[in-house]
Design a protein around this nucleic acid. Sequence first.
DNA 1: CAAACACTTAAGCAATCACTTGACTATCCA
DNA 2: TGGATAGTCAAGTGATTGCTTAAGTGTTTG
Lengths: 114, 114
Amino acid sequence: MPNQTSSLDLMFQALADPARRSMVERLSRGPASVSELARPLAMSLPAVMQHLAMLEAGGIVSSAKVGRVRTCQIRPEALSLAEQWINQRRTQWERRLDRLGDFLADTADEEDLK
Amino acid sequence: MPNQTSSLDLMFQALADPARRSMVERLSRGPASVSELARPLAMSLPAVMQHLAMLEAGGIVSSAKVGRVRTCQIRPEALSLAEQWINQRRTQWERRLDRLGDFLADTADEEDLK
DNA sequence: CAAACACTTAAGCAATCACTTGACTATCCA
DNA sequence: TGGATAGTCAAGTGATTGCTTAAGTGTTTG
């Protein structure tokens, strides 16, 4: 059964692998070529290319080729999209806990009046 | 070759599926049973159980069974871990852009002196 | 021009994912 | 007690991942 993949799917999927996160960490310090990204990773170049493709599919990285060198960059808008999704869930949950706390406090006050 | 999976792997992996994100969205409004989580999803209960297992493996959700009902909850600490990782990469990139901007501005100033 | 460089493509393989159906096991309620 | 309810286990299937090796394609550089 085919997964209908949204942009958040591809984004989180892209971040779910340590090799890809290490590439993102490297890129967060500035642009890099494919072989620079590959250097610290214990795998073949084609493997790195495949990871790069997933990062691009997730919108997290963009790249362009000049001569024989492909240079890669982070796309921070994409990262902030993922960040926002998580943040919204977390704060929604925390607001709920606050309301629950208020409710319990009110109930306690009413108890005090007795 | 076995993937040595870290907690961030499992976390992002857990968030990379629309069914699982919909479960998290539901849970961010408060605790729910397994069948409540399943109701809006067009899939069998066992499928939902498998998604739940991945959410628990990622530390995003915890659950406990009382009588015949299993009640699930969000674990916001886990969510904030993922949020922090993303936030660190994004801000590191943005700081770099700022420094680059300063450098270019300084260079322009020196040009002005000529 | 020829060799080195920086990728790129293709094919293949084992492991994991996202489901399914078909049992089965405990509650809970009348 | 006996049937509905809520969940669980197991096995199987097709698609996707995460790699590999082998064989290219363009770009510099001596």
